[in-house]
Amino acid sequence: MIYFELAGAPRGKERVKQARDGHSYTPERTVTFEGRLAYAAQLAMGDRPPFEGPLRLEVTMHMPIPASKPKAWRSAALRGDIRPTVKPDWDNGGKLTDALNLIVWIDDKQIVSGHVEKWYSDRPRTEVRVTPINPAEGIFA
């Protein structure tokens, strides 16, 4: 199993944009976030080679609490009574897995099970947990 976190407000993968001259590009914010995520993964993996075989991916996005919210709302959000219904979309949080190819796994097609959650926190961050699945037993290794 591998676990790592990336400090700062979570970002989702933005759609590819098209320039006026017709070429496509990934927005700079996505490229920067994916680069930071890849670096955090490299540190967590150390000298280990990428995982092989089927994997479970868990992503937890801890969103910042808006400064404009009153104290009672903030307390409820920190307890988990209020959950974020703001961007990024949960599925775009999971799509950032391309950044971990050849670092945590060979290819993200190895992910056969996944879970993405969003919570509020006074310490915004993105947490990633990858667990190998033992296919012979059908359970997590």
Rank of each mutant, 00 (worst) to 15 (best):
M1S: 07
M1R: 05
I2G: 06
F4P: 02
L6A: 11
A7T: 10
A7E: 11
R11C: 11
K13Y: 11
R20T: 08
R20A: 10
S24H: 08
T26F: 11
R29P: 10
R29L: 09
T32H: 14
T32N: 15
F33Q: 01
E34V: 00
G35D: 09
A38V: 04
M45Q: 03
G46L: 10
D47S: 09
L57H: 00
E58A: 04
E58Q: 04
M61R: 07
H62F: 14
H62D: 12
I65H: 15
P66I: 03
K71N: 05
K71C: 00
A76W: 05
A76L: 10
L78T: 13
R79Q: 15
I82H: 14
R83F: 03
R83G: 04
T85Y: 07
W90T: 13
W90A: 14
D91H: 13
N92P: 00
L96N: 11
T97L: 15
L100N: 10
L100R: 09
N101H: 09
N101F: 06
L102M: 05
L102C: 05
I103W: 04
V104E: 05
W105L: 14
W105K: 12
W105P: 09
D107T: 14
D107I: 12
D108I: 01
I111T: 12
I111Q: 10
V112F: 00
S113R: 07
G114H: 06
E117F: 01
Y120H: 11
D122V: 02
D122P: 01
R123D: 06
P124T: 03
P132N: 05
P135L: 01
A136I: 12
F140E: 14
